[in-house]
Design a protein around this nucleic acid. Structure first.
Ligand SMILES: [Mn+2]
Ligand SMILES: [Mn+2]
Ligand SMILES: [Zn+2]
Ligand SMILES: [Zn+2]
Lengths: 135, 135
DNA sequence: ATCAATAATAGGATTTATTATTAATTGATA
DNA sequence: TATCAATTAATAATAAATCCTATTATTGAT
């Protein structure tokens, strides 16, 4: 990020819009109406770059493609088992696990990753996964 | 798993050997000396099948390829940031997070995934990642 | 023991997400 | 305004995982 680029500005705007935790492809789809000539590689590169500089957050999800988060505050996520939607968990709910020992199993502990798994309200109501996104 | 297969028996034996949490490719490499004609697809299919039946565990790791675990008891894992090695966390260390509310953010909570991130003893000593496996 | 039904396999092709390459363009700076 | 490294669009390459199909192996019934 040694200099500005219009593409990066637009990408950042679109990641920050809403709380949807979009994948690179979804960001690409949102950016394209505004920048019809942009390429997917540019989106990937800038998302990585923005995440490396702490402007956005990269979410590595077990068994799913990575997503990005415009909200860089420390928070956990919950994921719908049926449709794959990722939502924020508000508040300091799970503080206990932060009180970890410095070493464990002879590892030096640097951090942790936690996500909750559940069924989102929409999938619960419709009883069964909705068409959007299977896992 | 409606029928037996020799391939599946060997695959299971190799997953259970040691505590190494091998990837499908690693299982393939271990099985091949014993079954030179086996194909990677067969290894993937049987690992999925064994996991679906609870005979082994499938580990979906954020930002890394999936691994398999012959130990089906409930336990967490710690992962080396430098070399990617995955080790077991012994004991009921992190019980607090199991006391979760039934619903959160209007989701029905079914479970959680937690992994610790750290530096393994080998990587700490050699100061810097060892050649085996970057990330 | 033989046989037919069909589950499971081998080998290869395909898909999907991501990264690398490259020539052309652009933004910052003097 | 000229310079030049950073960035881009386009495309190729890679890696993990899945899918496809002809063949083989397992099983229950004879
Ligand atoms: Mn979030
Ligand atoms: Mn384990
Ligand atoms: Zn859902
Ligand atoms: Zn290590």
């Amino acid at each position: 990020m040694k200099r500005h680029s219009h593409q990066r500005d637009i990408i950042l705007e679109e990641v920050r819009r809403g709380k949807t935790h979009p994948s690179a492809q979804e960001v690409f789809d949102r950016v394209r109406p505004r920048l019809p000539k942009i390429s997917l590689g540019t989106v990937y590169r800038n998302l990585e770059q923005l995440a490396a500089h702490g402007v956005i957050r990269k979410l590595e999800l077990p068994g799913q493609q990575r997503r990005f988060d415009g909200d860089t505050s420390e928070h956990y996520h919950i994921r719908c088992l049926a449709c794959g939607q990722v939502d924020d968990i508000p508040g300091p709910l799970l503080v206990q696990i932060r009180q970890l020992p410095d070493t464990l199993n002879n590892y030096t502990i640097l951090g942790h990753r936690l996500e909750l798994i559940g069924i989102c309200p929409r999938c619960r109501e419709t009883a069964g996964p909705n068409p959007s996104n299977g896992q």
